[in-house]
């Protein structure tokens, strides 16, 4: 296809992606080096018959003018990255010097708290959901074909559901007055047990929700993969005396391996931006995520912190790139090998 025709076809897509994906990333990077204007303070003398007193107040007029002149705020250098809400370099140094219960202290810093949960979620939910999805696909594959349709229907519901809606539905059940929350309290005999009160419970429930909502994707892909397992290989393995488990281990799993890499890649990307569950479960006291930090900086209409949101965003993007690096390097090598 000639270059001209190619770009004529591609132009709208490329334009959309440059305008609304590339430029915002640049804009976020620039933003992350700025912070809001400092309040302009004026001193006013208030004189009454009983004497004069001076009062300091924020000069709103001057603030509005400053805001109009430089909407991005003032240049801050790396300050947004190093302050307490992000990399917290000074705090880390202090914690290091003090010693003691370092982990607990580091987990009190908002960025590290969010990072810890995001990574835990990403690297626990992905493999566990894949294992569950694989088990479901093996199980559904043994059903008589009349039952397969309905079983597939119910199995993909947790994936199709809007993340915010799904997490709300589950969160309401885990509410101390909801069906699961109340049952948990009476089972453990602890009337104060609730998501709000217990950080470990919050983590477990959020991870469980993650597995619940991610497993169907693995299930669907693996289920389709199962349909293409060569019957001859299975047959000959059986004749050679392989047990059921050995057939799964040495025939089916190797056959599904390429699919598993694909699923793992997609799930890691999606789980790294975990966000809605934190909102849906109102879990921010016990578990936050990187995306939630950005959201939290932007959500209050009158005090949006663009610099802070920008810094967190850039750090998140760096995280995504690190996550993708092995894939990118491999693709690049494959491509070069093909070209040679």
């Amino acid at each position: 296809m000639p270059h001209r025709t190619f770009f004529a076809f591609m132009a709208p897509s490329i334009l959309a992606m440059i305008l609304f994906i590339t430029l915002p990333i640049l804009s976020v990077i620039v933003q992350s080096f700025y912070q809001g204007h400092e309040a302009v303070v004026v001193t006013v003398e208030n004189c009454t018959p009983f004497g004069c007193e001076s009062q300091t107040k924020v000069d709103t007029e001057a603030m509005a003018k400053l805001q109009a002149e430089a909407p991005m705020g003032q240049f801050a250098g790396w300050a947004n990255y190093t302050n307490r809400n992000h990399l917290a370099t000074a705090e880390l140094a202090q914690i290091w010097a003090e010693g003691g219960d370092m982990l607990a202290k580091v987990m009190n810093l908002p960025f590290y708290k969010a990072l810890a949960f995001t990574l835990t979620y990403c690297f626990l939910v992905t493999p566990l959901a894949m294992a569950l999805g694989f088990a479901i696909s093996l199980a559904i594959n043994t059903l008589p074909s009349v039952l397969k349709g309905p079983a597939i229907f119910f199995s993909i519901l947790p994936m199709i559901i809007t993340p915010l809606v799904g997490s709300l539905i589950v969160a309401w059940m885990f509410n101390p007055q909801g069906i699961v929350g109340a049952s948990l309290q009476s089972l453990t005999g602890d009337p104060t047990l609730s998501l709000r009160a217990s950080a470990p419970l919050t983590w477990v429930v959020l991870l469980g929700y993650g597995i619940w909502t991610n497993a169907p994707f693995s299930f669907v892909v693996f289920y389709a993969g199962l349909q293409s397992v060569p019957q001859d290989t299975i047959e000959s393995a059986r004749i050679d005396g392989a047990s059921r488990w050995e057939i799964v281990r040495f025939v089916i799993i190797p056959h599904l391996m390429p699919l598993a890499t694909f699923v793992a890649l997609v799930q890691l990307m999606d789980n790294f931006r975990v966000f809605e569950p934190v909102v849906g479960f109102s879990a921010e006291a016990n578990a936050t995520s990187l995306s939630w930090l950005v959201f939290n900086d932007l959500v209050s209409a009158d005090s949006q912190q663009f610099g802070s949101a920008g810094a967190t965003s850039v750090l998140t993007i760096v995280g995504v790139l690190i996550l993708l690096a092995p894939v990118l390097v491999r693709t690049w090598r494959d491509f070069n090998r093909k070209a040679v």
Partner: peptide, 25 residues
Amino acid sequence: FWILIAALVFRAMPHITLVSGYLLP
């Protein structure tokens, strides 16, 4: 090929990080 790879990277961008780039402009 490179457009597809770029698309893969864009696909991985958390949406909220892009949103924080949209607001000011």
